[in-house]
Each structure stands twice: as C-alpha cells, then as structure tokens.
Simulated scan of single mutants.
Amino acid sequence: MWKALSARDWEQVKTFLSDDCIYLDMPVGPAAAARGPEDIVKRLKIGLEPLASYENFTGLLVDNGTDAMYEHSEEWHWPTGESAVLKFVSVHKVVDGKITLWKDYWDMGALANNAPPTWMEDFANADMSWVFDATGLV
C-alpha cells in the first residue's frame, strides 16, 4: 500500500482498503474522516496530488497480525518551490488482508510552516464530499 501511495497510484491504493475503511488525520479529528476507498482517495489527493514530488521514507513497522504501527516520514515538494519533511506514525487495523482503519498522527504545524501561502485556501476550496464524521467509531 505504501509503495502505491508513494507512486500516487490511486487505483492501486484503493485495492488495499476495505469497503468500510475509515481514514483520519488525528490532528484534525474524527469529525473530518473519510470512509471507503473512493472517499479516502479523494481525501488523500487533496494533499498529495498538487505536489511536484512526494516521497515516503521507510521507517519502523510493528504489527501483531491485526494492528500495525508504522513510523515513517514523507517529503513534499510543491511546484512553487516550497518543501517539507513530515514525520508520521500511521496506525492500521487489518482484517482479512484489507485495511479497515487508518489513523495518521503528525504535526500539522510542520506542514503549515513550510507549505505555500495558498495551502490552507486551496484545502478549503477542495472537493469536501469525502467528509465522514467518525466520532464514536474510532
């Protein structure tokens, strides 16, 4: 899944997600989660598709067969020249070979301090049809 995400191969990313998978950025919280492969990819595209380049750097992966924690970093480069290295811990629940829950823990300030000045405005104007309120589910 991480190789597909690094390649921004959206169709391949979807194949790793269960039909009812919930994805959320923990800094934002469960009220702005995405649910299901189509909406999760819509959500991921908001941040990653506009980038000139994006790379995921492998880190520590720990799992117990169902739950996985992946400490990694991502390097983002915008077409306007800005760049950021973002440190993540991603937590997955995997059932029958599919991710059913995906939570990303990261420092929103690291992104906001390095992104282009239009970053928040671009996000606010993006397609938000993916928003799913997962409060009480995660």
Results as ranks from 00 to 15, higher is better:
residue 2 W to K: 04
residue 2 W to N: 07
residue 6 S to Y: 07
residue 7 A to C: 06
residue 9 D to C: 08
residue 9 D to Y: 10
residue 11 E to M: 13
residue 12 Q to K: 15
residue 15 T to N: 08
residue 20 D to A: 06
residue 20 D to T: 12
residue 21 C to S: 15
residue 23 Y to W: 13
residue 24 L to R: 11
residue 30 P to Y: 00
residue 31 A to K: 12
residue 34 A to I: 04
residue 36 G to Y: 13
residue 36 G to I: 11
residue 43 R to Y: 14
residue 44 L to P: 00
residue 45 K to Y: 07
residue 45 K to F: 14
residue 45 K to D: 10
residue 46 I to P: 04
residue 47 G to C: 04
residue 49 E to H: 10
residue 50 P to N: 10
residue 56 N to V: 09
residue 58 T to P: 01
residue 64 N to G: 13
residue 64 N to A: 09
residue 64 N to L: 06
residue 66 T to Q: 13
residue 70 Y to A: 03
residue 71 E to G: 01
residue 71 E to T: 03
residue 71 E to D: 00
residue 77 H to S: 14
residue 78 W to H: 10
residue 81 G to Y: 11
residue 83 S to M: 12
residue 84 A to C: 07
residue 85 V to A: 06
residue 85 V to Y: 05
residue 86 L to V: 09
residue 88 F to K: 00
residue 92 H to Y: 14
residue 93 K to N: 05
residue 93 K to H: 06
residue 94 V to C: 09
residue 95 V to L: 09
residue 96 D to Q: 14
residue 97 G to V: 12
residue 100 T to R: 02
residue 102 W to K: 02
residue 108 M to V: 12
residue 108 M to P: 00
residue 108 M to R: 10
residue 109 G to Y: 07
residue 110 A to E: 05
residue 112 A to C: 02
residue 113 N to C: 13
residue 113 N to F: 12
residue 114 N to H: 13
residue 115 A to N: 08
residue 120 M to H: 06
residue 125 N to K: 09
residue 129 S to Y: 09
residue 132 F to I: 06
residue 133 D to S: 05
residue 136 G to V: 04
residue 138 V to F: 06
